[in-house]
Design a protein around this nucleic acid. Structure first.
Length: 207
DNA sequence: CCCGTGATTTAT
DNA sequence: TAAATCACGGGG
């Protein structure tokens, strides 16, 4: 099924500018292990957040208790709760101390779809399981307990290599990030990336 | 279109 | 201490 043997992405992979990482994560596999079982899917949508210069980034106004893990080494998970209900998962990019990250917005389910469905009771179709940041967090059982986890070392949350190289540019869609209308000129920056024509990409929201 | 929901941040 | 905000999802 997979051409490559399972190989976990390491800190050298994550330690690059967030926009590069956002594009290179497309097609790789996000893996969550719970109770010895794998729940996994291909990453099909991401967004880059550029830190202290980016008005849409949580780290724009500096370090707080919530966003502290953005200052961690590349490959750190930054997980936060939004709207009192939904969790979102980021992977820290760049050099340690530069609070840049990539939001993982959608997956194409590959393993453990039954477990995903059992945690996503409102999902009616396979494309409802992981087609949004809150959805995938719920499907994979990702919450704030995983905030700060080093994905380069954790056995509970990591990324596996499925592709040796970044997808060809013609297969990658690019446009403004979702839900950041408040970010003024940064709202329009083309920092959202997705696998073109993939049905698991989230629907666009206002902004 | 509208609303739930509550931690976090920001203003007073 | 109080108010506003929010990198969303689901239902109509």
């Amino acid at each position: 099924m997979n051409a490559l043997p399972a190989e976990r992405l390491d800190s050298a992979f994550f330690r690059r500018p967030a926009t590069d990482l956002a594009r290179s994560l497309l097609g790789q596999r996000l893996v969550r292990v719970v109770g010895g079982r794998r729940i996994a899917g291909r990453i099909v949508e991401t967004e880059a957040y550029l830190g202290r210069v980016d008005k849409a980034a949580h780290s724009y106004r500096g370090r707080t208790e919530r966003n502290a893990s953005m200052w961690g080494p590349a490959g750190t998970a930054y997980v936060y709760l939004i709207y009192g209900m939904h969790h979102c998962m980021n992977v820290v990019a760049g050099e340690e101390g530069d609070p840049v990250a990539v939001l993982v917005r959608a997956l194409e389910p590959e393993e453990g779809a039954d477990l995903m469905a059992s945690q996503r009771l409102r999902a009616k179709r396979p494309t409802d399981l992981c087609s949004g940041p809150g959805k995938l967090a719920q499907a994979l059982g990702i919450d704030r307990r995983l905030d700060g986890v080093l994905m380069t070392q954790s056995d509970a949350l990591f990324v596996e290599r499925c592709r040796r190289r970044t997808l060809p540019a013609r297969l990658i869609g690019c446009g403004p990030r979702v839900g950041v209308a408040y970010a003024e000129e940064w709202a329009k920056e083309p920092l959202r990336f997705w696998v073109r024509d993939n049905p698991h990409v989230s629907r666009q929201r206002g902004g």
